[in-house]
């Protein structure tokens, strides 16, 4: 973070998006936008969180460091952002406590933007979670973190193709050294304000037999709640016997969707 605090001419230049950043720490009573920070364990989510909010959530190099969720805030370009650091998970399809916290927040908390942090060096494995998140929300930004470390291992990510494949903006960062944070802020801002439209990737190659069953359930859900962006995912969860989702449908928690 110390990288960001140096006052060089670049930092105060109007062209530098980061010059428009004001870290708020935990002062986040009213906010214009809510940002969720999701990702696999040990991808540097907490470091991204710290560099945006100016908070000093303890980070450590072992999976599962963030238990529960942390909140912070910042002002960018006049808009007030509240940011929720979700626990790191490998998937959203099991019933462990941290997966439920992450899943429920993205589903019911309806964040304006979800930042999905992935490790550039382990992109394939990390994409599993990213693809699941994209079934739930269509306003997301992929943050390919730890690019410097990946580079050391001679790995590079074609972010343009990745963005095209996933249908969401992709930003390469190294949060630890402050690389790409300015870009991330600007992209999140643009997605939140609707300046960038996302057309997220939806899971393909589902066996025909299953896909038809899913479609049937999905149509029923859409009949009940016409404006739901994630009816397919809810159909997935219903077929998986997810009790939380069944309960939410019974309570009508999906009705007030935007």
């Amino acid at each position: 973070m110390s990288n960001n605090q140096k006052k060089t001419p670049c930092d105060t230049c109007g062209q530098n998006p980061q010059g428009r950043l004001k870290r708020l720490g935990v002062e986040i009573e009213k906010s214009d936008y809510v940002i969720a920070l999701a990702g696999n364990p040990n991808t540097g989510k907490s470091t991204v969180f710290n560099s945006l909010t100016g908070l000093k959530q303890h980070t450590g190099n072992w999976p599962g460091k963030t238990v529960g969720r942390a909140e912070g805030g910042y002002i960018f370009d006049g808009s007030k952002y509240k940011m929720i650091d979700l626990p790191g998970t490998y998937s959203l399809m099991s019933t462990s406590e941290d997966e439920e916290i992450a899943r429920n927040f993205i589903l019911f908390g309806k964040p304006d933007v979800t930042i999905i942090v992935v490790d550039a060096g382990r992109l394939e494995r990390n994409l599993n979670l990213a693809l699941q998140i994209l079934e739930i929300t269509d306003k997301a930004v992929l943050c390919v973190n730890l690019i410097d470390e990946a580079k050391r291992h001679n790995i590079e990510i074609d972010t343009r193709t990745l963005s095209k494949e996933l249908g969401i903006p992709v930003v390469a960062t190294s949060a630890l050294r402050g690389i790409g944070i300015a870009d991330l802020l600007k992209t999140v801002d643009e997605v939140a304000k609707g300046e960038i439209k996302c057309t997220p990737h939806r899971i393909k190659n589902v066996p025909k037999k299953i896909e038809t069953e899913v479609k049937k359930i999905q149509d029923k859900i859409e009949n009940l709640y016409p404006n739901l962006p994630n009816s397919r995912w809810i159909a997935f969860r219903l077929l998986d016997g997810d009790r939380d989702i069944i309960k939410a449908i019974e309570n009508g928690e999906f009705i007030n969707d935007k």
């Binding site: 990510i157 972010t159 193709t161």
Partner: peptide
Amino acid sequence: IAEKTVLK
């Protein structure tokens, strides 16, 4: 997707 985007 990884196949298309990860350059090793």
